[in-house]
């Protein structure tokens, strides 16, 4: 890293670093405050009734954010509703109907490939990239196949790590099998997420990401995306238009939790 030492020294000089001015020792927070601890506890012990309430919040904020919130709440109904969406909607860039989805256990349980009505539709999955020695296909070849499938698809189906209700913010981390482009390049983005993943707001999300030991172990990964609604722009005379570069539509399904 050429220039780093000098660069930092220039800043140090500008800040008047030296004896008695070494910077704030407490600049990085290393222990959670009492409020943060309490918030963590509240998230962990949230009851089914409270989660249902959060679902209600999302139903309310979805409209203004231009999110299509669907009422179906069990896997069978959701699969049926997604099937209907695939049939009803027209591809934006061509005539072939291809759909791409994450390699994700919840999405696998939808069994979309066994829906009879989707016979003429190609269903792709963004499989894990293995590569490495002894692999049949190189990682680069797998990646370019995934890229091709995503580009060809007019609908992308993903899940998400969390959903913060107040702003309908979906949280997605980059992981093997979870292509970032599946929520971005297709014209329509469909999200299926479990009710257990609902949080009240961004404060809860950040508290969790920062202080929860499991989250800390995972880290943010090299790409964490927060998505609140479909792509939009107001750059021409401030007229709001949906579908600037990313998906024009965002459809949301929340799977109801198991009965206690």
């Amino acid at each position: 890293m050429p220039g780093r030492t000098e660069f930092i020294q220039t800043i140090g000089k500008a800040l008047g670093r030296g004896a008695g001015n070494a910077g704030d020792a407490d600049i990085f927070t290393t222990t959670a405050s009492l409020e943060q601890e309490a918030l963590l506890a509240r998230i962990k012990t949230r009851s089914a009734a409270e989660r249902k309430q959060l679902r209600g919040v999302i139903e309310q904020v979805a409209g203004p954010l231009h999110i299509d919130f669907h009422p179906e709440d069990n896997l069978d109904d959701i699969a049926g509703a997604i099937g209907r969406l695939i049939l009803e909607k027209d591809p934006e860039w061509g005539t072939e109907k291809s759909v791409v989805r994450w390699d994700h256990p919840l999405l696998s349980r939808l069994h979309l490939e066994s829906l009879a009505e989707l016979d003429g539709v190609t269903l792709h999955t963004t499989d894990c990239v293995s590569g490495g020695q002894g692999a049949k296909v190189s990682a680069a070849a797998q990646r370019s196949a995934i890229r091709e499938n995503v580009e060809a698809s007019f609908i992308g189906i993903t899940s998400a790590d969390y959903l913060a209700a107040a702003t309908a913010t979906l949280v997605m981390r980059s992981r093997p099998g979870h292509a970032r482009s599946a929520s971005l390049v297709p014209s329509i983005h469909i999200v299926v997420i479990e009710e257990e993943k609902l949080l009240a707001n961004l404060e809860e999300l950040y508290t969790l990401l920062k202080w929860d030991p499991e989250e800390q172990a995972q880290g943010l990964t090299n790409c964490l995306s927060l998505i609140s609604g479909p792509s939009k722009t107001g750059d021409i005379e401030l007229v709001m238009v949906h579908g600037a570069h990313g998906p024009r539509e965002l459809h949301l399904f929340i799977v109801k939790g198991e009965a206690p």
């Binding site: 990239v129 980059s174 099998g177 961004l202 964490l224």
Partner: peptide, 28 residues
């Protein structure tokens, strides 16, 4: 910036895509 609660897309980017990930840049 836009009279919004939170921007539509907020991305945290920390480096290039990991080797076993499906997509993302090879260099950051």
């Amino acid at each position: 910036a836009a009279g919004q609660q939170i921007g539509g897309y907020v991305s945290y980017i920390g480096g290039p895509a990991a080797e076993n990930h499906c997509d993302g840049p090879q260099a950051f």
